[in-house]
């Protein structure tokens, strides 16, 4: 990693590390640390989704469902069965991976946008199950008193502690994804994106890679759901409905597909929009999101990150993690 590439990353890390301390002294924004915990949790979902959308060229409308699988798996395994949360988390992720594989294999064998349709249906089914399986999920009234998390025997209690925990997960997901993109697998994914026919002729099993990326996105979403569960300690099915899946897609589109930074930026931006700046619009939320989507599509179709790079500097490659 050379200096030009390293500098923006170092600046980003420094800013993120200092963030809770920068907002804490100001009452009006001290709760931004809490908002950033949610933003970080959602980033885990959208990092995976941006690989799926940007490189496999597929849209999933079930990311909220995978988020829900992780959340409820953690809640049930720790709350009902007394599992350690750190054991419940991979169990939920494994379940999400298995389900993604079952949904993805038939949908991704076919060319075209069958995955969007399959995941739309699947997401709705998961939402119904969460509502109807009252005995397990508490139904519409949800689950309460879910245990919290401990790291090395210490309870993660304060918002600041949660902030660092969640963003450590985000950093790990970013690094893992960055490495994937800069490998044999990543080259294959980019090749699929640029010329699918040629990629196939070079021996790249296109469908299999699309399934792998989809499974990866489901695993990340499930891990995010587990963290969410232990942070808020109560669950209702409404956090896992289609509207949330659409929001995740929107976060990726706003930030810019094909860029891991785009997923992060779009997610933080829309989380603040949703949590902070939108209550004024209350019932018109859908309209606001529609307006944002329209504005992005018309004005900055590449997403905010590419647009900012072009504005701020001519050195596109310094921010984009995908160049050599």
């Amino acid at each position: 990693m050379n200096l030009r590439k390293f500098a923006p990353v170092a600046a980003f890390v420094a800013f993120m590390a200092a963030f809770p301390w920068m907002v804490a002294p100001f009452d009006a924004i001290s709760h931004y640390t809490d908002v950033m915990v949610f933003a970080g949790i959602f980033c885990l979902v959208t990092i995976g989704l941006s690989l799926l959308m940007g490189f496999a060229g597929q849209i999933s409308l079930a990311q909220a469902a995978f988020f829900g699988i992780g959340a409820y798996a953690s809640a049930i395994l720790t709350g009902r069965f007394g599992w350690n949360p750190w054991a419940a988390m991979p169990a939920g992720a494994a379940a999400a991976a298995a389900v993604a594989w079952i949904v993805g294999v038939p949908a991704l064998r076919l060319k075209g946008h069958y995955l969007a349709m399959a995941t739309l249906g699947f997401g709705v089914i998961v939402h119904i199950v969460l509502n109807e399986e009252v005995e397990w999920t508490g139904g519409p009234s949800g689950m309460v008193d879910i245990p919290g998390l401990s790291v090395a025997g210490v309870r993660v209690l304060s918002e600041t502690a949660w902030y660092y925990l969640v963003w450590t997960f985000v950093a790990a997901a970013l690094i893992f994804s960055y490495h994937v993109l800069h490998s044999r697998v990543g080259r294959a994914l980019r090749a699929i994106h640029e010329a699918e026919k040629a990629a196939e002729a070079m021996g790249v099993p296109v469908a299999s890679y699309k399934v792998q990326v989809f499974v990866y996105s489901a695993v990340l979403a499930s891990l995010a759901g587990s963290l969410y569960t232990h942070y808020v300690t109560f669950l209702t099915p409404s956090s896992f409905d289609l509207m949330w899946s659409v929001r995740f897609v929107l976060m990726v589109v706003v930030g810019g597909m094909q860029s891991l930074w785009g997923a992060v930026l779009g997610t933080v931006f829309l989380t603040f929009v949703g949590n902070e700046w939108l209550h004024v619009f209350a019932d018109f939320e859908v309209l606001v999101y529609g307006g944002i989507l329209l504005a992005v599509a018309l004005l900055v179709p590449q997403g905010l990150v590419v647009w900012m790079q072009e504005k701020l500097s001519r050195r596109r490659e310094t921010l984009l993690p995908r160049s050599e």
Binding site: F176, S183, V185, A188, A191, M202
Partner: peptide, 17 residues
């Protein structure tokens, strides 16, 4: 390098780690 794909093996996990 994409041409070498078919003669090499490292997968998703190996790449990420």
């Amino acid at each position: 390098m994409v041409g070498r794909h078919v003669r090499t093996r490292s997968g998703f996990w190996a790449a990420g780690l």
